[in-house]
Design a protein around this nucleic acid. Structure first.
Lengths: 201, 201
DNA sequence: TGGCGTAGCAAGTGCTTGCTTGCATCCTAG
DNA sequence: CTAGGATGCAAGCAAGCACTTGCTACGCCA
């Protein structure tokens, strides 16, 4: 990586850390520059604005998220493992960069430029998952006496609660490897036992 | 209510609204005063500090929470209805004043004075519920192959997801009456089907 | 009627913020 | 070897922030 590209990257890394812990508004450009080991002026020369930093960061997050989705296992007929894989991916995304995405989602309420930036992503996630749930209710893989939107909400509730207690409240350890973490499977199993069609014993 | 007590109350109302939507740091004393229809100086005469406003607000929230707890049904032997009642109370608390409590929990990471203020409350909730879960596992009311802490986490995940999608993301309507809302019961039922000991059909 | 508590208003202080300017320095490609 | 781009440094600016001061006006009870 060229030296110039490296400074830009270091600035984005620093911004990601600080935005995640202190929020966008409470993070100063001076603090970002200092953490990046860079003069504050360099930040402005690179990104023009504080907004510019945010935009570049959002782009980078989008690129990585796309990469993760492409690398993950494609959906199969096995509903349980499809959903479990999706849960792991969701959690990995949310844990990425210290819970940055979740923090920004919160900040969107008070910072309009963040609201614009994230506006579409999340509702789409919820709606898309609800659609999948509805399909699987029709095929008899999921119980059909619960509104698919409620089900999708519960699913995201589990994944986001996993992240919240770790990142936001700092109550538990962050797993070293999301792909194999047992806690996630237990949590998911709780959801799954409730959502799947009961097997007759 | 005396005129003086009324102004104080109006200031707290305004602060609650603004803290909930914009966060603590992003809310200016000027904005609070303006929304309360009060001169900014009056705010400082009443509460000394911006911190003073926060403290008074936290006290008021605590008083109301205590009131709600006292008014709610006492725990019974019926685990399902005890937990459902607890879920409703949790959700009612979180929805109170436009999701203020959740917003403050987020702000705690960047504003040390909020961290001090809330520091104890939440972990205690989680620990206390986990204890209850463990007891009920011992008595055979809940399945015992899942860590009670994970169970408690899932429980809070459901309640907080209910609040998050409504307040933070603004995705759905806030129910007029938490006590009777069907969505909560569906959501809870999803948890309950997963957490309860399977009945043999 | 007179004093006291509660409020408003105008102005200002010191600090932090995002952002700019001007100039000196370094590194590297040609 | 040299020109140009990337960086550092010192200084500063306008705006917004929490908070203060000094003064005036209203309403209420003795």
């Amino acid at each position: 990586m060229s030296a110039a590209a490296d400074t830009a990257e270091r600035i984005l890394d620093a911004a990601a850390e600080l935005f995640a812990t202190h929020g966008y508004a409470a993070t100063t450009t001076r603090a970002i520059a200092e953490r990046a080991g860079v003069n504050e002026v360099t930040l402005f020369r690179r990104f023009e604005n504080k907004r510019g930093v945010l935009h570049a960061l959002a782009e980078r997050m989008g690129r990585r998220q796309a990469g993760r989705a492409a690398a993950s296992a494609p959906p199969t007929d096995d509903v349980r493992s499809t959903l479990l894989g999706f849960a792991r991916m969701e959690i990995a995304s949310a844990l990425e960069e210290g819970g940055l995405a979740m923090r920004l989602a919160f900040d969107a309420r008070s910072v309009p430029e963040i609201a614009e930036l994230l506006g579409e992503g999340l509702p789409d996630n919820l709606g898309g998952l609800a659609e999948y749930m509805a399909e699987r209710q029709a095929t008899g893989d999921l119980r059909d006496d619960i509104d698919p939107r409620v089900m999708a909400e519960a699913f995201f509730g589990l994944t986001s609660s996993y992240v919240m207690y770790r990142q936001v409240m700092g109550a538990a350890d962050v797993p070293t490897d999301v792909e194999t973490d047992q806690g996630i499977e237990q949590l998911f199993d709780l959801f799954w036992s409730g959502a799947a069609v009961k097997e007759r014993a």
